Amino acid sequence: MPERPDSMDRDDVVGAKAAAQYFIEMYPYVYATGDLEEWREMSHEECEFCFTVIDNVEQMHRDGEYGLGGGITVDEVMVMDPEGGVEGVAVALRVTEAPSAVYSEAGTVQSSTMGGDAYYVPTLVREADQWLVTTLAIDTDIE
């Protein structure tokens, strides 16, 4: 599991940036382990992406499958204006994702990705002294 940064406890932009990076770094971890506790705690009830990941991970692990690879290196972190009048702090993370694969219980490759560069853009809100992800978009370029 990625190390949770203490700066996530801050209720300012620094805290939002730390929370966004931590959340993104958990992405390959939850697929590899099926451990969704932290992911769930940071997922706002409105976050479709968050709950799609939860559903996919639970199904995969019920089927005896697991993911490997896909490690994420965060190359740049930028704060943006949320799109479409959404409340919160939008954080654009320019990342490099390592290749990954999903394996069956028998160890055969079910699917794979080449990885590469992308922008992960979660929007976060601060509720009950913690950061929650309300939306998350993935793109190859941002303006």
Rank of each mutant, 00 (worst) to 15 (best):
Q110N: 14
T33V: 05
V79C: 02
V133K: 09
A118Q: 07
Q110V: 15
Q59N: 08
R94H: 12
C50N: 09
A92H: 01
V121E: 02
D75F: 01
W131C: 00
T73V: 11
C50P: 02
A19P: 04
V95L: 00
P5T: 01
G64H: 07
T113G: 12
I54Y: 09
D141M: 11
I54M: 04
A137G: 12
M8P: 00
H61K: 05
G67C: 08
A118D: 02
A106W: 10
S7P: 06
A92K: 00
R4D: 02
E41Y: 13
S112V: 03
V79S: 10
D139A: 10
M80Q: 08
I138S: 04
R4A: 09
G116R: 08
Y66F: 14
D63P: 07
T96H: 12
V121Q: 04
A92V: 00
T108A: 15
S111C: 03
W39A: 03
F49A: 11
E38F: 08
F23L: 08
E65N: 14
D6H: 10
V53S: 06
E45A: 13
R4I: 10
Y31E: 01
T33D: 09
R126N: 04
T52R: 13
E37F: 05
Y29D: 06
P122I: 06
Q130M: 06
T135K: 12
F23D: 10
M60N: 10
E38D: 12
L93K: 05
G34E: 12
E143V: 11
R126H: 06
D141H: 11
I142E: 04
F49N: 12
P122V: 03
F51C: 07
T96E: 02
E87L: 05
E65K: 13
S112W: 13
T96S: 08
G34S: 15
A90I: 00
V86F: 03
M42L: 15
C50R: 12
A20E: 02
E3I: 14
G67W: 08
E83V: 03
W131T: 07
G34T: 13
A106M: 09
Y22K: 07
R94P: 04
E38S: 13
E83K: 13
A18C: 01
A90L: 00
V53D: 03
T140C: 05
T123I: 08
V53I: 05
M78H: 02
M60T: 13
V125W: 07
E46Y: 14
N56G: 03
L68A: 13
